[in-house]
Design a protein around this nucleic acid. Structure first.
Length: 825
RNA sequence: GCCCGGGUGGUGGAAUCGGUAGACACGAGGGACUUAAAAUCCCUUGCCUUUUAAACGGCGUGCGGGUUCAAUUCCCGCCCCGGGCACCA
């Protein structure tokens, strides 16, 4: 390793200079420069920066530095998402206050971040645990409460026995375990503080159109919200009450030959006296309660259910009396918890009807061959090539009730609607029976109450009559009490605080009691990007001016795990604030990139138990911060859904490259060949374009090509300086050092990114391939503007090509300037 | 099952308004320097056939077809991998 590139000394020296001169602080908005707000997800202060943090911060830093050099005023803030369970658990273990643990971790991590050399705008930092941060979290909660966005709800919640607290739906993984600790989630019925994210379901889907995000992220959010449109229709029961069902297929109403209630449906208990087989029904309800919701959703299981004897319903379309069942294939938590069942046209209903021998009435009839009929054939693994025969078969099977048919067709058995298409019939039939066209969603309200200590206290007090009141602004922050034993017991630790009780009585009066739950930490991170803008404002959470200056976030870099958690929550939060007139924009983030994951050298996810963790501090000590950063950038394109394994050899390659850049300083002279000047201009262009597209890997390879060439052909001092500026965003320490070595005053990072001359990037001569009958047979060197006759002339002069043509007649010539010449003989 | 991505050398990855596939780097092999090693520098490196050597030889971008002068790129039908949703009415 080159002794001269003493990365330890160089990095220490420049980090101090940058810090002393505060060159990365963003300061006040400078209207003469275009603004750009680049955000990276603020980290949890676990006390140790890992490779993932490096990838999350140091690589976007390339983009930030580049944008600054191109004249943008870039806000690139950093802060800490510091409430949460790890601090609490660590504090329990060490018998200290989580505050101490958190604060010392933040200090330590700030030091580690300095070693990255990232250009953070530290003048705009904040932390969710600062009182002047969480004061505003509480204030917004109060405003939400006053406006019905926050409410106290009764319902079934997810209880994590590992964390001893309730968690939100988004925090339950698909295998029914806790996102944080992997414990199996239990369902509990308890009152909960909720946020009405469902009120914003449509906006959360529709506004995705207005943001420049990768399609897969948008799609994941749409799936999570799960909107489906249909109708709510009332069915009257023989016990003199209506049941509302939700259906996406009101057009099939005439085919509804039974209805099903979820076992938990309130009307079941309410009318148990009318149910003659109550014992059987009750037993079924009990069994389905035992099953976890996920198990119930297992579609492969055979349908189960019980008929409610003594109760019938009336089909509002044809007045037919139909039986009523309870079955666990109907979910209490979705739609209205009740369905109309159309066995002729729904797979589940068909299976159920077959099993319980319920009447099947076909109401959709395919009358011509088309894609839908083909789809049916595929679904049913029927292979008939004769279209007419296939159609006849399906028609026959439908009429003989041997199949369900869920595709397009014309209505039959539907009185005056016969002959209509499905889409014509939907609204018409819904209207006839007084149904309401509506949407229904998979998304549930966000439960934010946590029965743990280290979080924002929910700023609510209860009057003697038990009514909830928000703590008024003058008493905020509603501080987290410290006289608490926070060992988790499942009871909120704040309930044990005498200080909190006293405080409540002193302020509000005798008989008043405090809320003792704290907030989900995802609340804290739902609005941090706003606080950065105005981190010292005591009067408002963020001023109008600061918002005008900086919002929206132009570029948001983050992790894929937040797609349906943080990213969804913070979009909701922004929309809720907008509804209250507190912010201008309905979307917080214009662009989003989800970065990939860095795996251990063995190709597995880094974990202590696998022993494949790469410690960035060690690597930085070994090869330097610039090298680590460049290696991460070189692994592959940022923002692909790919994961890259760490490769010790690969990082050495980056070190070699930087040493060669440093070594070039000895080779500079007054002059250089034209080709290197041309290559420099091409390099400036390509690197700039690549950074804008987050293709840092190809930007680096372009610079490598330049250095390879410069070593061979020599380089002028001027070009060397220009090249250093191109490299500066990638290797801030080394370039700063060489910049100073060359006798320049000031920091290279306050220089402008070099401009290129478009003309210089255009080649005078290019090598193009020559094909004969479409096969590659040679190449010629030619001007990209040359015409066909010039190209053919070159072929004539080329012996090798002539011998392959071998005197044959050229029947056709395909010539694309600067690309290809294809001769057909 | 539905919806998004993606399959390219030993490895990470380049190149897609169709136009010289494998840039750049790692690894590997050979050589120079050295008492030796490390470091550094130079050369070779997709696969196959024949060969002392080779290419003006053949094959190659998951598989099978198609369109085209020309396909990693476009179309049709499959397979596999990753992700989201899933008895959602």
């Amino acid at each position: 390793m080159n002794k001269r590139f003493d990365h330890i000394e160089i990095e220490k020296k420049w980090q101090k200079v940058w810090q002393d001169n505060a060159i990365y602080n963003v300061g006040d908005r400078n209207p003469s420069r275009e603004k750009e707000y680049v955000l990276v997800e603020w980290p949890y202060p676990s006390g140790n920066l890992h490779i993932g943090h490096w990838y999350a911060f140091a690589v976007p830093d390339i983009y930030v530095r580049y944008r600054r050099m191109t004249g943008k005023q870039v806000l690139f803030p950093m802060g800490f998402d510091a409430f949460g369970l790890p601090a609490e658990n660590a504090a329990i273990k060490r018998k200290i206050n989580p505050k101490e643990w958190t604060e010392s971790n933040i200090e330590y991590m700030k030091g580690q971040m300095a070693s990255m050399g990232t250009a953070f705008s530290w003048d705009k930092t904040t932390s969710s645990t600062d009182e002047d941060y969480y004061k505003w979290t509480q204030w917004m909660f109060g405003e939400f409460f006053k406006n019905g966005i926050a409410y106290r709800g009764e319902g079934v919640v997810n209880w994590c026995p590992g964390c001893n607290t309730v968690i939100a739906n988004e925090q339950v993984q698909s295998d029914d375990t806790c996102e944080r600790c992997d414990s199996k989630i239990e369902k509990r019925k308890m009152p909960q503080w909720m946020l009405k994210i469902t009120d914003f379901a449509d906006a959360l889907i529709d506004d995705l159109e207005s943001v420049d995000w990768p399609e897969h992220i948008k799609e994941a959010q749409r799936n999570w919200i799960g909107r489906s449109s249909g109708a709510k229709i009332n069915f009257s029961l023989s016990v003199g009450e209506d049941v509302t069902v939700f259906t996406t297929r009101p057009d099939t109403l005439f085919g509804a030959t039974y209805m099903v209630l979820a076992p938990e449906h309130e009307l079941v208990q309410k009318h148990k006296d009318s149910i003659t087989n109550w014992e059987e029904v009750e037993a079924y309800i009990d069994t389905s309660k035992q099953k976890a919701e996920r198990d119930r959703l297992d579609a492969t299981k055979e349908k189960t259910g019980v008929k409610l004897e003594g109760i019938t319903a009336t089909n509002p379309a044809n007045g037919e009396e139909i039986p009523v069942y309870i079955a666990d294939y109907v979910l209490a938590g979705y739609g209205t918890g009740a369905i109309m069942a159309v066995p002729a046209h729904d797979e589940r209903d068909f299976a159920f009807a077959k099993k319980f021998d319920i009447k099947i009435t076909p109401v959709i009839y395919p009358d011509h061959i088309g894609g839908c009929v083909k789809n049916w054939a595929t679904d049913n693994k029927v292979n008939i090539s004769d279209d007419d025969k296939l159609l006849a078969l399906i028609q026959e099977k439908i009429m003989s009730k041997q199949t369900f048919y869920k595709y397009r067709g014309r209505l039959i058995n539907s009185a005056e609607f016969d002959g209509l298409s499905i889409s014509e019939a939907k609204e018409a039939i819904a209207e006839k029976v007084g149904g309401e066209m509506t949407n229904t969603y998979r998304l549930r309200d966000w439960s934010i109450g946590r029965q743990r200590y280290w979080g924002v206290p929910i700023p609510i007090v209860y009057s003697p009559d038990g009514e909830a009141h928000p703590v008024p602004k003058e008493h905020l922050p509603w501080t987290l009490p410290e006289d608490v034993d926070f060992t988790p017991t499942g009871v909120a630790p704040l309930a044990k605080s005498e200080e909190l009780k006293r405080r409540t009585i002193e302020i509000f009066g005798e008989g008043w009691t405090p809320e003792v739950e704290t907030m989900d930490t995802f609340v804290d991170s739902s609005w941090y990007f706003l606080r950065y803008l105005d981190n010292k404002n005591d009067d408002e959470l963020v001023s109008k001016k600061a918002q005008d200056d900086w919002m929206q976030v132009d570029m948001y870099f983050g992790g894929a795990e937040h797609t349906t958690m943080h990213l969804l929550y913070s979009r909701f939060w922004q929309k809720a604030l907008k509804k209250l007139g507190l912010v201008n924009d309905s979307e917080p983030y214009k662009r989003r990139i989800n970065r990939s994951l860095i795996l251990g050298p063995d190709g597995n996810k880094m974990s202590k138990s696998k022993g494949n963790v790469v410690d960035p501090d060690e690597q930085v000590k070994l090869v330097g911060s610039d090298t680590v950063k460049m290696y991460l950038a070189f692994m592959g394109p940022y923002g692909e859904a790919a994961n890259y394994p760490w490769d010790m050899g690969g990082i050495a390659g980056q070190r070699r490259f930087l040493e060669r850049v440093y070594g070039l300083v000895d080779d500079v002279s007054g002059e250089e060949p034209k080709e290197i000047t041309v290559l420099l201009h091409k390099t400036i262009k390509k690197v700039g374009d690549d950074i804008k597209n987050f293709k840092f890997n190809t930007a680096i390879s372009t610079m490598m090509i330049f250095v390879n060439q410069a070593e061979k052909s020599g380089i002028s001092l001027n070009s060397y300086k220009v090249f250093l500026k191109v490299l500066a965003p990638f290797a801030p320490h080394l370039t700063e050092q060489i910049w100073a070595d060359l006798g320049n005053g000031g920091s290279i990072h306050t220089e402008e990114f070099p401009a290129f001359d478009e003309k210089m990037t255009e080649d005078e001569q290019v090598t193009i391939g020559v094909q004969i009958n479409g096969k590659m047979r040679g190449e010629i060197s030619i001007s990209p503007k040359a015409d066909e006759s010039e190209a053919l002339k070159l072929v004539d002069e080329n012996d090798s090509l002539q011998s392959k043509i071998d005197g044959a007649e050229i029947k056709k010539v395909i010539y694309v300037q600067g690309r290809i010449l294809n001769l057909i003989i």
